[in-house]
């Protein structure tokens, strides 16, 4: 006998004057191999077409479908119902602006983050279409790729107590992004320039190091290592900056 799942979904449509925030219960018969991508679409198509949620790649690649599933932020498309009890509670990701039901505005959040970090390669060199590419060790390319794998799903922000308390806190995803550029010799920014972006309480010094982010990251990005590395590096710079400032004053 297959189970009947009780799926409780947060509902609120800010564009509908009649809508109030509430939990709504749906029932669905569990089929083999059922995941939340299939389950939610079945609910929408068979029971309630007003349901709002985001999926895109449905292969755990694009980061669109993060939501809080029985208390834990994760990617819905790769979440199998068989790993859960009969009751499944779905909430939108906290820390991002709600669009409706389970949809949140991660797009604007990450765009602003990337603008703040100036998360692109900074260089004075012109691109020369005639020239051979600059060489790089394969092992270094692989290290950069390892950090590049972040899919901006927002789970680490949703799981981070600091980010939930302080809206300007950059979070693990941003710190990892900066670590990626520090590693990349093509980015010519100086340590001081990186320091100006993340050497504050909104950056690395705001991080309490409890590592909820690392446990939650669906891409298993080694966030702990990056945070530790930045804390050390930026800590040294902070001391240097302080001494420099004292000497001058």
């Amino acid at each position: 006998m297959s189970r009947i799942l009780e799926i409780n979904i947060f509902r609120y449509n800010p564009e509908d004057p009649a809508s109030v925030p509430r939990m709504q219960t749906y029932y669905l018969e569990e089929t083999p191999n059922l995941n939340l991508f299939i389950a939610l679409n079945r609910l929408k198509e068979e029971q309630d077409p007003s349901l709002m949620f985001d999926f895109c790649c449905r292969a755990a690649i694009c980061g669109a479908c993060a939501m809080v599933i029985n208390g834990k932020p994760q990617l819905a498309c790769k979440t199998k119902t068989k790993d859960f009890p009969n009751q499944i509670n779905l909430m939108p990701l906290p820390g991002f602006k709600l669009i409706g039901d389970l949809c949140v505005d991660t797009g604007s959040w990450f765009r602003i983050m990337n603008e703040k970090l100036e998360a692109w390669v900074h260089t004075n060199k012109e691109f020369d279409p005639e020239a051979e590419e600059e060489r790089m060790e394969n092992s270094l390319a692989e290290q950069i790729y390892e950090l590049d794998r972040c899919i901006e799903c927002g789970c680490c922000i949703a799981a981070c107590a600091t980010a939930q308390m302080r809206s300007g806190f950059l979070g693990a995803v941003a710190l990892n992004r900066i670590a990626r550029f520090i590693l990349d010799p093509r980015d010519k920014r100086s340590e001081q320039q990186y320091f100006e972006i993340i050497g504050t309480d909104q950056g690395i010094f705001g991080c309490m190091g409890l590592l909820a982010c690392e446990d939650i990251c669906p891409k298993n990005i080694p966030l702990q290592d990056q945070l530790g590395y930045l804390r050390k590096k930026m800590g040294v710079l902070a001391v240097k900056n302080y001494l420099f400032w004292k000497k001058r004053s």
Binding site: W120, V121, T123, K125, F127, P129, A131, E132, E133, E134, R135, M136, E137, N138, A141, E142, I144, Y145, D148, D184, R186, D187
Partner: peptide
């Protein structure tokens, strides 16, 4: 080939010859 090299210039971590 120019497109690929420009992407490298912009920061794509292409795998390299060992």
């Amino acid at each position: 080939p120019i497109a690929i090299r420009q992407l490298a210039y912009w920061g794509v971590p292409w795998n390299r010859v060992v």
